[in-house]
Write a protein that binds this DNA or RNA. Structure first.
Length: 554
RNA sequence: GCGCCAGUAGCUCAGCUGGAUAGAGCAACGGACUUCUAAUCCGUAGGCCGGGGGUUCGAAUCCCUCCUGGCGCGCCA
């Protein structure tokens, strides 16, 4: 990559200076920092190396920069190397490099942007994992898109990625689901029931009861316990089918659905807890079994087995996470609702106690989505049944707009989502802005085809016909796509690609309005087609990583 | 009380490992369609980066403190 080339050029220059005695400290910064200047007049890349060395050399940074630049000027990589401000070294890349960027995109097509930084690292992204007690709501949608896009981005960066959904099909919540269904079933049979406050009140419970009654009758010969268990099984199965179908409508498919109950069925909870005991990380007190998480940064110790002998939710979650590493993952990413943040220290403490590095588990917190309609907030709550489902939102505003919207902000900041606004202003929606850029290029291709023109091959492409600053600006942005993907992957920040896309689209629209691609001069037309088709490829690649479509016509 | 996240233009938000004159979209105002799709473009205006201290060549970014908003602090899941 170009950044590394510039770094090694700088390092080489530094070595030369030390050998020639023009610099004397012998200091080598751990990593030579390169940045993309905000102001394009400051060149394509800039380094603060001279500023970093100033203290060690005891010389003003600009003087150091001059010495370094003298050693760099001969390098064919650069058009110009300048000193600016307090001592920055600004690099402007030579034309030959820009030509290479277009060649690469043409050669790699859909693979352009992929890298190998994560090569050989197995990572699991666990996301959504909503309780199978009701349909997905809008908050789940945000976590779903972020997790899905992140998984795609990691894969593009060379990681080996698995998408997993953890099904909380053991414990109180699904029991409550079963009881709620059974009560509604009895109501359907004419019984008057006293529906408890902590039951699930929503209408879909009655739907499930009706369907159960149709398929399996009234469960009259079963004991209360058997009937509840039957209702639970039926409910979980049905609801998971809804969830899967909603996620598919959103463009999301999981590689693995992992059942909490299966941990118990395979005695995994007991086994993994046994390993913790063996390591001396647990103790008994008040007839309960505790995990010493305070030894590893938690603010209190946590119960694994309650005094009545039953496991806590934490116990199965501990087993689940340990088992992830048993399955060979080097790194595990959990996407959680931000309201679970208090849970992170105990989980990290557990893994640390087990001897795993802190980076082995990364928890991405997804902040709340405030759903609005005409500026009025919705109050959401599963039990009250007053919530807007993810499916309703997808149907209303469209999959692309919905996904893009969820990815537009850093996931740890809250998000206001106004349904009416998202629909009403759909033409102002940033997703259309980006997609339109792609459609415009496709349209140019169609018009060109009518007069028998097509984008040139690599051999036919004549870079010297691209003489405009706007053209170099476009190529510069294209050249940064691999860095953008890598940055988004290493920092777990999918939103970076959204901003990258908006910048690229803006440059394309601006270029389109100022200059004609299909020019009178055939040679210019040909070169410009090569350029805009590189833009088209990168737009499509970036959109694809976000799970948003790249339409050819709008 | 303790902890986590946030506080940047009127609104919604970017700002990568600390860097040069803090950016974009929307809203406002003024322009551009006989020209490849105006779902677009060009321009103007808009700021004590919540307040205050500190660290250094240099702070929106790091540290301390205070203020405001959200969310957590179960032998619940």
């Amino acid at each position: 990559m170009i950044k590394n080339d510039i770094r090694s050029a700088l390092k080489q220059a530094l070595e030369n200076c030390y050998q020639q005695g023009t610099l004397s400290s012998g200091e080598y910064p751990a990593e030579i920092q390169l940045e993309v200047p905000k102001n394009p007049e400051h060149g394509d890349y800039a380094s603060n190396l001279a500023l970093m060395l100033a203290r060690h050399e005891g010389t003003p940074p600009r003087q150091i920069a001059e010495v370094l630049v003298a050693a760099l000027r001969a390098n064919a990589l650069f058009d110009t190397v300048d000193i600016a401000g307090p001592g920055f070294i600004n690099f402007r890349l030579a034309a030959a490099y820009w030509s290479t960027v277009l060649h690469r995109i043409d050669a790699e097509q859909g693979a352009f942007g992929r890298s190998q930084v994560g090569s050989g690292i197995k990572v699991q992204v666990e996301f959504v994992s909503a309780n199978p007690t009701g349909p997905l709501h809008i908050g789940h949608g945000r976590g779903a898109v972020v997790g899905d896009a992140l998984a795609s981005i990691l894969a593009a960066a060379g990681f080996e990625v698995q998408r997993e959904y953890y099904i909380n099909d053991a414990g109180n919540q699904v029991q409550t689901l079963g009881r709620s269904i059974l009560l509604r079933l009895r109501e359907l049979q004419g019984e008057v029931v006293d529906f408890p406050e902590d039951g699930y009140q929503a209408a879909y419970i009655t739907e499930l009861a009706a369907r159960l009654r149709q398929e399996q009758g009234e469960l009259a010969d079963l004991s209360e316990e058997e009937a509840i268990s039957c209702c639970t099984r039926f409910g979980v199965e049905q609801i998971l089918a809804w969830i899967d179908s909603d996620l598919r409508a959103f463009g999301i498919e999981f590689d693995n659905w992992y059942s909490e109950q299966s941990l118990y069925d395979r005695n995994m909870v007991e086994q993994e807890l046994g390993r913790l005991k063996q390591k001396g990380l647990t103790y008994e007190e008040d007839q309960a079994l505790w995990l010493r998480t305070t030894d590893f940064g938690d603010d209190k110790n946590r119960v694994l087995i309650k005094s009545d002998g039953s496991y806590t939710y934490f116990a199965s979650d501990v087993a689940y996470h340990l088992e992830k590493f048993d399955r060979g993952f080097d790194r595990v990413i959990d996407v959680w609702g931000a309201d679970h943040h208090g849970y992170i220290p105990r989980m990290k403490a557990m893994l640390k106690g087990f001897g795993l590095p802190a980076e082995a588990l990364e928890v991405l917190l997804i902040q709340m989505v405030n759903l609005l309609r005409d500026g009025q907030p919705f109050v959401m709550g599963k039990r009250s049944g007053n919530f807007v489902t993810l499916r309703e939102v997808i149907d209303e505003v469209g999959r692309d707009a919905c996904r893009f919207f969820f990815l537009m902000r850093r996931c740890d900041s809250q998000l206001d989502f106004d349904l009416e606004l998202a629909k009403q202003n759909s033409s102002d929606n940033p997703v259309y802005y980006v997609q339109y850029a792609h459609a415009r290029i496709c349209s140019i291709n169609r018009n060109a085809a009518e007069v028998g023109m097509a984008p040139p091959s690599r051999e036919e492409f004549d870079f010297s016909r691209l003489t405009l600053d706007d053209e170099i600006a476009l190529i510069r942005q294209l050249s940064r796509f691999p860095e953008a993907v890598e940055g988004a992957a290493l920092h777990y920040e999918p939103h970076r690609l959204v901003f990258y896309l908006q910048d690229l689209a803006a440059l394309l629209h601006s270029y389109y309005n100022r200059h004609r691609v299909l020019d009178e001069d055939v040679r210019v037309t040909s070169a410009r087609m090569y350029l805009v088709n590189a833009v088209r490829i990168v737009l499509a690649n970036a959109l694809s990583l976000l799970g948003v479509s790249a339409p050819e016509k709008m």
